[in-house]
Amino acid sequence: MSDKKDKDAKPKKKGGGKMVMILGGAVAMLAIGGGGAYGLVAAGVIGGGHKEEVKEDNRPKLIKKGEEDPYAPKAKEGEGGEGGEGKEMEGEGGSEYRTLYYSFADDFTSNLKDSDALVQLSVACSTRRDYRVMAWLKKHELAIRSALLDVLAETPEADIQNSQGKDRLQKRMTAAINKVLTQTEGFGGIDAVYFKSFIVQ
């Protein structure tokens, strides 16, 4: 009887081994086929042509001299240039990009850090980007003024006694304006801050 059991057991093992190989091959083919199908779907070849959308860079662009700024206010009839301020006259040398300036309407007055001294400034800033940056400056002037007053209040009196300290203050003010614009509009764009007047009392 044991011989009969051994004979019956051997064919089962052989058949079971073939079945495992067939099943393993089928699983491998499905995995390869599934991976290939996934790759084709991801590439947009099959599956309704679904492709991953690429976001367009919608940040303000640098504007070359003589190039039209699509965001500049249109001149009124009978007036030339951007915003009716007359035609821009660009020089031949220097930067290849046009520069726009924005002057803050009111002066900035603040105490200085750990001092009884007061500073009063008239401030402007510049951008070589398109006119959207100018519109953002006007739109967010209140938040920008607040940030600039914070910068002034954190400035020690010794820092404004020499040109190196004033340069550092200008850089800190530029960074503060860009931070506000980045938080509110997603992009800064200010290149520099300028002092139109600077009085310490």
Rank of each mutant, 00 (worst) to 15 (best):
E53T: 15
V45L: 08
G24F: 13
G66H: 06
Y194D: 03
T109G: 07
L148M: 15
G66F: 01
K18R: 12
G83S: 11
N178H: 09
Q164P: 03
V180D: 12
R128M: 03
G93R: 11
N111L: 07
T174Y: 08
D69R: 00
E68Q: 09
D57C: 04
M89A: 07
K76S: 04
D106Y: 11
G91I: 04
S197G: 12
E82G: 00
V54I: 11
K5V: 04
G66S: 04
G94P: 15
T184Y: 14
A31C: 09
E67K: 09
D191Y: 14
R132A: 01
K196Q: 09
K13S: 03
V133N: 08
R145H: 07
W136S: 02
A124K: 15
R129T: 02
G81F: 00
V133S: 07
G15R: 15
A153T: 14
G47M: 06
T182G: 10
K55S: 04
I190V: 15
K18E: 03
H50V: 07
A117P: 05
V20W: 14
D3K: 12
R129L: 08
I190C: 08
D8P: 03
S122H: 13
V20C: 03
E185C: 03
T182K: 14
Y38C: 02
H50P: 00
G91A: 06
S110T: 11
V119F: 11
T127V: 04
V193W: 15
L148K: 13
M1L: 07
L149I: 06
D3E: 10
Y38S: 02
G188K: 11
A26E: 05
M173I: 01
E92P: 07
A43D: 13
G81W: 00
A175V: 04
D130P: 13
F108T: 07
K179M: 03
P11L: 01
M21C: 10
K65L: 01
K113W: 13
D57S: 03
V45A: 06
G84S: 15
E154C: 02
A117W: 09
I177W: 13
R172N: 12
D130Y: 10
E52D: 12
K55F: 09
A43I: 00
D114C: 05
T174V: 02
S163R: 09
I32L: 12
T99M: 11
Y131A: 01
K171C: 00
R59T: 14
E85C: 02
K76H: 08
E154M: 08
M19K: 13
A31E: 04
T182M: 10
C125P: 14
G81N: 00
A43L: 05
D6P: 08
S197D: 12
D6E: 10
L137N: 08
R168V: 03
A135E: 15
N111A: 05
E82S: 00
T174A: 04
A135G: 12
V54E: 12
G44L: 05
V45M: 06
A176K: 11
S95A: 06
Q161K: 13
G47T: 00
K4G: 02
E185N: 10
